[in-house]
Amino acid sequence: MHVLASTPLSPEYWLGLFGAFAAIGVLAIIFAETGLLFGCILPGDSLLFTAGILTAVSELNGVEFQQISLPVLLIGGPIAAIVGAQLGHWLGAKYGRKLFDRPDSKIFRKEWVEKAEYYFNRFGPEKAVVIARFVPIVRTFLNPLAGMLGMDAKRFFVWNAIGAVIWCDSLFLLGHYLGASVPNIDRYILPGVAVILVLSVIPIVREVMKGRSETKGLGQ
């Protein structure tokens, strides 16, 4: 019997909830987070990392979980991420700004759309699609934004696929190998995710600082 974590923001909550269907549940969350606006509230990096750990072990914090197949995650994860993002792109292309024409709530903030648009304009469409995979909230809203701003669906698909494979499989494999080699790996889930986020943000911060320096240089 699983003892579920107290908050839906915890990856253990969802993995325990899905039980024997944990792999399917992980793929469903990946799809929702990348394709549906409400998916922004679902766990992303932490879920992928923890699911990767559960391909190597079957116990976290003294609680037994259903062990997950690594090949299923490595193949199914990117597919779910690609399909979800393509759906988001299609919705953005079909409905445009109307898709974001709603009041702020717990699952939607206009500032999140503005943040995604900043990434899109600052890094360019192709680079932004890949980078967004590693940025919570942005990875949900950038896909429909790309469709709304007219990024070609075929060009989006190419960079969507590249970003999906890098994001999903790097986190799955990292979780798997750490789960197989580090005793009591459950103690390091949150610190591990924090390190991943910091490492993914460093290139973005560098690009932003570079852009600000260039802007200042032109203004002098």
Rank of each mutant, 00 (worst) to 15 (best):
P78D: 00
R206F: 06
P43D: 00
W159D: 03
F18E: 02
Y188W: 13
F120V: 01
L37C: 04
L73Q: 06
I107N: 03
H2L: 10
L145R: 13
I166C: 14
M148F: 07
R133A: 03
V198D: 06
F134Q: 05
G19P: 13
V135P: 11
E33G: 14
R97T: 09
I166W: 00
V26C: 05
P136F: 05
T50G: 05
I137W: 00
L27F: 09
L70K: 13
L27P: 15
G76M: 05
L9Y: 15
I41C: 04
Q67R: 11
P103D: 02
T50W: 08
I29R: 15
F49E: 02
A194P: 15
L91M: 08
F157R: 04
V57M: 11
G77Q: 07
A180G: 12
I75E: 06
V129Q: 06
M1A: 09
V83D: 02
V201M: 12
F65D: 03
K154S: 11
C40A: 09
G163H: 01
L47T: 06
L145M: 14
L149K: 15
E126D: 15
E12V: 13
G39Y: 08
G163D: 00
G175M: 10
R206V: 08
F108P: 01
A194M: 15
F156L: 02
D101E: 14
I53V: 10
N160Q: 05
R155N: 09
A180E: 13
E126Q: 10
L42G: 08
K115N: 12
W90C: 06
I75Q: 11
A28K: 15
K110P: 05
W14T: 03
L199T: 06
R102F: 03
S69T: 12
E111C: 12
K216E: 13
G192A: 07
P43N: 01
A23Q: 05
Q67D: 06
L60W: 03
V130T: 04
A85F: 00
G19T: 01
A180M: 15
A132H: 06
A80C: 10
R206T: 12
L145N: 01
L91C: 02
V165R: 08
M209D: 04
V138W: 02
V158K: 11
V201N: 11
I53W: 03
R212W: 12
L199G: 13
L70Y: 07
I30T: 07
L87E: 01
A85K: 07
P125K: 07
L218N: 14
G16S: 03
F65V: 07
L4K: 02
P125C: 06
G25K: 08
F18Q: 06
A32V: 15
L27I: 13
T140W: 06
A85S: 10
V195E: 10
S69H: 12
G77M: 09
V83Y: 04
F21E: 11
